[in-house]
């Protein structure tokens, strides 16, 4: 068992290293081809007051005048020593920016992940148990509608209803505007988080609910449910004893494998609500040619999504007894 975990982790680590390397190269190459002039965006509104010489100096200061391959090598060797560089937009070490942003995003994504997982699972179970009833049709049409709805649109809709019309929730940002950082309470933070979390989870419910529904329908049609019924099991007891046992694992696996979509959704949701998380920082870094920050973020999000998939894989392999144990030596 322990051995199995070590081998599993070893293989995953090698893959991760290869993945990170290729992602960095591709991102760097893409930035090299990007039409955005980082100096231009660095100067921003001061464009009239900055002369050609000063531009040269700025470029030289950030190393922007060097050819891309050289910059890549420099960045890589710094990274290997643990230095991710300094963000051009925030003028802060990239690690600081990411650490702070990550706190915001992680909280946001964790809430959305749990919420969509739990609600989606329950909705899927309910739909399957009442297959073809009005409840099932309602849940299915909700899922199909949302599966084809972009999350930013949901975000805008929520904003319109709760922030503009009803005025219950703040329009955006991570904390109230014009309040000193030390006066911001947890309640404030949570209130600002409600809409992005809702946006993210409303969309995240669909896949897990549909998957759970189908899986449970299949399981309830299977021979072993038939036999359990023949032995007097029925109703809720049957569902708990044999149904959930067989669908929980695939649901958990799917939920971990959805880290990618979760992150993608977060980028859009954070953008809509100007929520200061990783997603928003990624958009900023991309639009303004902040290469060190962008690279840091890309690596971080790759790591994040990879972790999700690896966990999904792990659960799939290690928790299912058919993969965990070898077939018994015959008696």
């Amino acid at each position: 068992m322990i051995n199995g975990i070590m081998v599993f982790a070893g293989k995953k680590l090698i893959r991760l290293a290869a993945l990170l390397a290729s992602v960095s190269i591709i991102t760097f190459a893409l930035v090299a081809m990007s039409p955005i002039d980082p100096v231009q965006s660095y100067i921003g509104a001061d464009v009239m007051r900055v002369g050609a010489e000063q531009r040269q100096e700025i470029a030289a200061y950030w190393g922007l005048d060097r050819p891309f391959p050289e910059r890549f090598i420099k960045w890589t060797s710094a990274l290997l020593q643990g230095d991710m560089g300094t963000s051009m937009i925030y003028r802060e070490p990239v690690t600081h920016v990411i650490a702070e942003r990550f706190m915001h995003s992680a909280l946001l994504m964790a809430f959305a992940w749990l919420l969509s997982g739990v609600i989606g699972f329950i909705a899927g179970v309910a739909a399957a148990m009442r297959k073809d009833s009005w409840l099932d049709r309602l849940i299915k049409s909700y899922c199909y509608t949302l599966a084809s709805t972009p999350s930013f649109w949901i975000g805008l809709l929520l904003m319109m209803i709760f922030a503009v019309w009803l005025g219950w929730l703040p329009v955006g940002m991570g904390v109230p505007a014009g309040v000193l950082a030390e006066n911001v309470t947890w309640a404030d933070r949570l209130r600002h988080m409600v809409m992005p979390v809702l946006t993210l989870s409303v969309v995240g419910i669909a896949p897990i609910a549909l998957h759970t529904r189908q899986k449970l329908i299949d399981v309830m049609d299977s021979d072993f449910i038939l036999f359990a019924k023949a032995r007097g099991e029925r109703g809720l007891g049957l569902l708990l004893r044999h149904g959930l046992r067989n669908i929980a694992l695939p649901a958990i696996t799917l939920q971990f494998a959805s880290f990618g979509e979760l992150f993608g959704g977060a980028v859009l949701a954070e953008q809509v609500f100007s929520y200061p998380g990783l997603g928003q920082a990624t958009v900023e870094a991309g639009l303004r040619g902040d290469v060190p920050l962008l690279m840091g973020l890309v690596l971080c999000s790759t790591l994040f999504v990879f972790t999700g998939n690896a966990l999904a894989d792990y659960f799939y392999r290690m928790v299912d007894p058919r993969l965990r144990y070898r077939k018994e030596e015959r008696a």
Binding site: S222, D223, F224, L226, F227, A228, K229, A230, R231, G232, E233, G237, H242, R245, N246, L249, D320, P321, R322
Partner: peptide, 28 residues
């Protein structure tokens, strides 16, 4: 069902694949 009237099914697929045999045999 499962008390006076009992079924002996045809194949192993009638056992829950994720449940240990002993636990599975014991019903309510």
């Amino acid at each position: 069902r499962g008390r006076e009237i009992a079924l002996v099914p045809q194949s192993i697929s009638f056992l829950d694949p994720l449940m240990r045999v002993g636990k599975q045999l014991h019903t309510r």
